[in-house]
Each structure stands twice: as C-alpha cells, then as structure tokens.
Design a protein around this nucleic acid. Structure first.
Length: 597
DNA sequence: AACGGAAAAA
DNA sequence: TTTTTCCGTT
C-alpha cells in the first residue's frame, strides 16, 4: 500500500533500477540545445517538434553515450516509440524523422524554470516552450493552431498548472562509459567550434541576464533556487575562457532547449526580470543570497515547499543538479506560480527557416565512413561558447541565424565534432527525491499469452555493466497530470527508495479527465482502453490558449522536412564504423577524440 | 519509414 | 524500468 505519499517509485534514486543513467529523451534534448548538433537534430516546426536530420548520427551519438556501438536509428527509434505511450513524445506524422515532445506534461521537477538559453540562434518556434507568464500561471505559448485545438485546454487543475521544463542538462553529460576514462560523449559541450577544447567552458552565464525565462518550481525554496541558479560557482566562467580543467563542473546550463526565443525585442527586455541567477547556474554551492530581484518575489510569495526536503535534496545533489532521469510522467501542478514577469515574446520570429532538405547531401550512405568534420564553422563564427553566450546580455544579438543560416551548413558536412572534454567526474549524487511517476502504460492488451514468442538467439552478451552511477540529471518530468482532484498533486514522496512498485500507484495516477487527444497528429496510440490514466494527459501545456499572447503561430510549420532519405536502418548493423567503441569495454583509448579513426 | 510485440539486457 | 535487440507488418 503505499499511501499516497509515498511515491515510491517516484523517488528512485539513482540506484534504483529505474534510474539508470541518462534517458534518451533527455539526451535528445541535450542535443537539441547544442548548436553543434543542429545539423544532426534540431527543433523545427511546432513547439516541441524536432527533426532528426541525421538519424544515423543521432543514433551514433546515442550509442556512444550508452556505450552501445551497435546502436542505430532503428533501435533508437524503437526507444523513442516507447515514449509514445509514455507520452513523452509523439511522432509527427508525415514528416520523416520528426517527433514532438509533449512538453505538455513535461515538467521540470527540480528546476522548473525554463530557460533557454542557448544562443538564440535560430530557434525555431518549435523550440522550447517558453514560459509565458502572462498571468499567474505559466504556460507555454501556444504553439500551433492545432494545439490550440485542444478542447480541453484548461488544465484541470484548479489552481493552475504550471508546467515548465527545466532546463539544464548537464552539459557534460557524458558519462563515462568506461570506467575512468571518460570517453566523452560526443555531446559534451557545446561549444563547438570555437574552441578547441571545450574544457571548461561552461561558462554559464555570466552575465546575466540573458534572457532566460525561468520559472520556479513551487516546491523549491528560495534557497534552493538560489543555489541552483546562483551559482556561485563559477567565478571563472567566462564565456570565452575555457579553462583547462575544471571542466564540467557545473552543471547546468541551460535549458534543454536550445532555442532562445528571447532575443527578441528588447532582448532581455522581455523578460526583464529574468533571473539573472539563473544564468549562472553554477552549482557551486552555496551561494549567498543573491537572489535576483526577480526571483525573490516569486519565491517568497508563493510556494510552499518544505525546507527540509529541499535541504535533503540539495545535499544530495550538492550542487549538481542534474539528475538525469526524469520521470516521464511526473508532473505536478503548481497552483500558483507566478512568473516573474512578463509575457513572453510574443511571437518571436518565426522564421524557421528550416533547412529544407538540402542540407546535407547525403553523404552518409551508410557505408562509408562518416567522418564528421567539424562544424566548427558554426559556432566558430562567433561565440566562444554557447553557454556563455546565452547569458550574455545579448547573446545572439546579431545572429539571428535560424537554422539555416549557416553558411556552411549548406556546404556539407559539418558534423559536429566532438571534442574531447572529458568530463571528468560526475558527481554521483543521487537525488533523494525525484519526482517521478510513471505509470505504466501497460494495460493494453499486451500479453495475451500466447503468441509471440520469439526465441531470438541472443546474440551478444554484453555484459558488463558499466553503469555506475552517473548521476547527473536534471529532473524533468513529463507527467500526466496528477493533480488529483485537488490540485495538490505533488508528489509526496517519501522515501522508500527501493521499492517502487507499480502495483499500487494510485497515487499519482491521475486521471481521467477528458482527454483529448491531442494534437493533431498525434494519435494516441494506445490509450484508449485501459489506461485511464494515461489518457488524460495529453494536453499541451504549452499549448495555447493564451489570451494575451498571440499565437501567431502560423500554423504551418513549414517545410520541415527534408529528410534525406537514408537507407540503412534495419538491422543492418553498422557498416564499418568503429566510432566509438571505446566506451564500455573498458577501453578507453582515445579519450579525447571522440572518434578514433 | 514507422509501428509495435517480445525477449533480453542493464 | 528503461533501453536494446530482433523482427514481422504496415
């Protein structure tokens, strides 16, 4: 029995089974936020919609991160498909390699603020949802007309819902597959280009102010927030300076979403009070109070969180804030969350140019090698580090390049190079509490009993678990709403970390509200029958309905597509690509370079 | 290309 | 639990 307070599973510390390391969707988000990977994967289309421009590459990266060299898009996509039921993502039908995050439910548990920072480079509208705080609650801006369709937009939550996405992923999320050597995943930092090493670039923000939009989670206390944001930590984080060491010390960086909408009109003006602290997120730990004005108000005013919990949490995390495993379904509704300010930028620019398909010429045919050249050009053209830029007062000031703007992009290859940075250590902190809820989608007809059995031969046996704890993660969670009727839905959590059984989870499961389904294209794949709980949540928080805001969404996201066709998939196993093999097997050979030729 | 069952792996 | 792997189907 679990009383309603214990969301057992909601808690899973890292040790728990469920909390393994990084989750795919998190990883995707991470890639999306980095410009370096924009050639590979980028936001496009409606909010939350992204297209995998280079499936093969994405798979490779993912495989690298998980130490699964055999990863390919087919497999990766299978994993993505599992998210459908969890509602973390949907497939955008009709567009190849295009999926859409359901930020609707995505909530950031730990850090509910959303910020996006990355350069503003072009962020398509699809980028991340920005919080618009028009009123009290913050929601994501309407995305597309279709979203607006949602019938039930109101969240049922009485108080209001707040859903935000948290940001920040560890940049260095790289874990280490191997033991000590870090293999860097490819994603490490993003910088890309400009520098060669991205060692410490974390510079998050320095300045402040950039335009992040942030939200605060109701549960967070000021302190916690400050800590998070505050950063005290990196004094040196200069944008440009990449320290040779240090690397990854900090964590968070920006939101998962790469986009930064804000650059708009007044630059930071919109969010005038965006929290500066947010920018600096260094987890350094204690930061004195330096709450930015903006924050303070909010914090103080509305949330009631238990300090103790927070403390525990903080302790656990220490500074690191990341926890990668978020739970897919957790979410909380936050009754009164106020946003610091303003309204979002109404329409950012919706240029989305999308690169159409011409981008990469298709070189990857599969068989050959894929060398990813560097895309340094992209970044290099300017920003020293993405991170930092965001914080800067006007990061992107001049560069509007949406996506396609890159000159070289057209040229061809620009694969990101992954630089060596090893992230070194990852603080293994676990999080004492995570709010994770994830009701199993099951229920479906599944298992009938007889039928399927595929005795497949087991082929490999990898064996070794290299999981160790990685620890980072942010905790975002997608949730279905659990507001139980009262809206109180938070997750209480207690502490049973080890046990989570799903058997009972009535706690959070929520409801049957009416579900609408959702989005235009999204059909629900399953939820029809049995899972009451699932279905209800399809709403997009970010969706629409914003009176004040204009949804200028033109609806159509243009041409997002362009998938170059690639053929390989399926079991083809990967052709000759030794790329990252260094991972798991304890062979940490080239630490630096990511891909050993 | 995408879907999803199933079993296995981690 | 989530992800990986394999594979038949659409």
């Amino acid at each position: 029995m679990k009383t309603p307070g214990d969301s057992d599973w909601a808690y899973k510390p890292e040790s728990s089974p469920g909390s393994r390391q990084i989750q795919l969707w998190h990883f995707i988000l991470e890639l999306l936020r980095k410009e370096e990977y924009h050639d590979v994967i980028a936001w496009q289309g409606d909010y939350g919609e992204f297209v995998i421009k280079d499936p093969d590459e994405v798979a490779r990266l993912w495989g690298a991160r998980k130490c699964k060299p055999q990863m390919n898009y087919d497999k990766l996509s299978r994993a993505l498909r599992y998210y459908y039921n969890k509602r973390i993502l949907h497939k955008t039908k009709g567009k190849r390699f295009t999926y859409k995050f359901n930020f609707n439910k995505l909530v950031l548990v730990n850090y509910p603020f959303i910020d996006m920072g990355s350069t503003g480079s072009g962020v398509p509208q699809s980028a991340p949802p920005l919080p618009s705080a028009a009123g009290t609650h913050f929601r994501f801006p309407p995305s597309t007309p279709s979203d607006m369709l949602s019938p039930n937009e109101d969240l049922r939550s009485p108080g209001g819902v707040f859903s935000a996405v948290a940001r920040r992923m560890a940049r260095g999320s790289v874990s280490d597959c191997s033991d000590g050597t870090s293999v860097n995943s490819e994603i490490e930092d993003g910088n890309g280009g400009g520098g060669e090493e991205r060692g410490g670039e974390r510079g998050l923000n320095g300045g402040g102010g950039g335009g992040y939009r942030s939200m605060i989670h109701p549960r967070l206390s000021h302190e916690s927030l400050f800590r998070m944001y505050g950063g005290a930590g990196n004094p040196n984080a200069h944008p440009g300076s990449r320290g040779p060491l240090g690397h990854r010390v900090h964590p968070d960086n920006l939101s998962p979403f790469p986009v930064s909408p804000l650059p708009g009109p007044g630059g930071a003006g919109l969010l005038a009070p965006p929290l500066s602290p947010a920018l600096s997120l260094t987890p350094s730990s204690h930061l004195p109070y330096t709450p930015s004005p903006s924050l303070s108000p909010m914090l103080g005013s509305h949330f009631s969180f238990n300090p103790e919990e927070m403390k525990r949490y903080l302790q656990a995390h220490h500074q690191s804030v990341y926890n990668y495993h978020l739970s897919p379904r957790a979410f909380l509704h936050y009754p009164n969350v106020i946003i610091p300010q303003p309204h979002r930028l109404a329409q950012d620019k919706r240029e989305l140019g999308e690169r159409g398909g011409a981008e990469r010429g298709g070189e990857r045919g599969g068989g050959g090698e894929r060398e990813r050249g560097e895309r340094s050009g992209l970044n290099s053209h300017r920003h020293p580090s993405p991170l930092s830029q965001s914080h800067s007062p006007h990061p992107h000031s001049a560069h509007p390049h949406p996506h396609s703007a890159h000159p070289h992009s057209a040229h061809s290859h620009h694969h990101p190079i992954h630089h060596p940075l090893h992230l070194g250590e990852e603080p293994p902190h676990l999080s004492p509490f995570k709010f994770k809820l994830q009701p199993p989608p099951l229920g479906r007809k599944q298992r009938d009993g007889s039928q399927g059995h595929h005795p497949r031969q087991s082929s490999l046996s990898s064996g070794s678990g290299s999981l160790s704890s990685s620890g980072l993660g942010s905790s975002l969670s997608f949730g279905s709403d659990l507001s139980s009727a009262g809206g109180s839905g938070l997750i209480s959590n207690s502490s049973s970390t080890g046990s989570l059984n799903s058997t009972g989870l009535p706690k959070i499961k929520v409801e049957p509200i009416s579900d609408i389904e959702s989005e235009e294209e999204v059909e629900v794949t399953d939820i029809s029958d049995e899972d009451p709980d699932d279905r209800g949540d399809e709403y997009d928080l970010f969706s629409p309905r914003h009176p004040g805001l204009t949804p200028t969404t033109p609806t159509g996201p243009p041409p997002t597509h362009t998938p170059t066709t690639r053929t390989w998939m399926r079991m083809s196993s990967r052709p000759p690509r030794p790329l990252l093999q260094a991972c798991c097997p304890s062979s940490p050979p080239t630490p630096t370079a990511d891909l050993p030729p």
